[in-house]
């Protein structure tokens, strides 16, 4: 589904990502963890096309998307949920969903049918159907996150890049978000998720990739990653048991 080979990204002489390579199979849910500044969000920005890699290649569904613009990647079914809420605060909730649906390629829009109905359904998924005409700025952080995920879900994406979806969200909403991701998994969608919440990652991910200073240091099951020495060293500086 997604093949990343030798991906590097630098700002001036400062490398942010160095020779990052990994593959993601269709239907996999992969957690991406690592300390602040390890390059997780930068990796997402390169995968989404907002930053141009210094070297390396990205293949998605057997097409080379390395030099595609962000909106073309979105049209191919790569959905993104941003760390800082990708919601347009000056627009109503209805308009927030409309923008996403109207931006879809024509054939996808045709498949969706009545867009007004889809807008309603999307708001229902987020539990916000009664606030359709309200401005998005009136929502809480958790509600914004739910709306953003529901919108990405309804836009017919196949690969989801979720950047810290539970950041600043209440435990109740964290459970709701976990349920949404589980639904994605059941529907056979592929998810790459950046998180600091290890129990959350353990609960929903098939595999975890650990990034440190722009390098992949580990890629294994959540259980193995939790017990690994590398993870202890990255987060605590040394293995606390020694």
């Amino acid at each position: 589904m997604l093949d990343v080979k030798g991906l590097s990204f630098s700002i001036g002489n400062q490398p942010i990502l160095s020779d990052v390579s990994f593959s993601v199979k269709e239907g996999e849910v992969i957690g991406l963890i690592g300390p602040n500044g390890s390059g997780k969000t930068t990796l997402f920005n390169v995968l989404s096309g907002f930053l141009n890699q210094t070297s390396g290649s990205i293949t998605y569904k057997e097409s080379d998307i390395t030099n595609l613009s962000p909106y073309k990647r979105a049209h191919m079914g790569i959905g993104r949920v941003f760390q800082n809420f990708g919601i347009f605060r000056e627009m109503t909730l209805e308009e927030n969903v409309q923008v996403a649906l109207e931006a879809l390629p024509k054939n996808q829009k045709r498949e969706l049918g009545d867009l007004k109905k889809v807008v309603k359904e999307t708001l229902e998924i987020a539990g916000l159907q009664d606030s359709a005409k309200k401005k998005a700025s009136s929502l809480s952080g958790g509600q914004m996150r739910l709306l953003e995920i529901a919108r990405t879900l309804k836009s017919g994406n196949n690969l989801f890049l979720l950047d810290e979806p539970t950041a600043g969200v209440s435990p109740k909403m964290t459970n709701q978000i976990a349920d949404m991701i589980s639904t994605l998994k059941k529907d056979g969608k592929t998810v790459l998720i950046i998180e600091h919440d290890l129990p959350f990652i353990g609960k929903i991910c098939d595999r975890v990739i650990v990034l440190d200073v722009g390098h992949i240091v580990l890629s294994d099951t959540p259980q193995n990653v939790k017990q690994s020495k590398e993870l202890q060293e990255i987060y605590f500086g040394a293995d606390p048991t020694t």
């Binding site: 989404s48 907002f50 613009s69 962000p70 909106y71 979105a74 049209h75 959905g79 993104r80 941003f82 990708g86 919601i87 347009f88 605060r89 000056e90 627009m91 308009e95 923008v99 996403a100 931006a103 879809l104 390629p105 919108r151 836009s155």
Partner: peptide, 14 residues
């Protein structure tokens, strides 16, 4: 309007 509010967010939607 979406682009004027946040270019990246709008482009990520297509």
């Amino acid at each position: 309007s979406a682009l004027s509010e946040n270019e990246w967010h709008a482009q990520s939607l297509g």
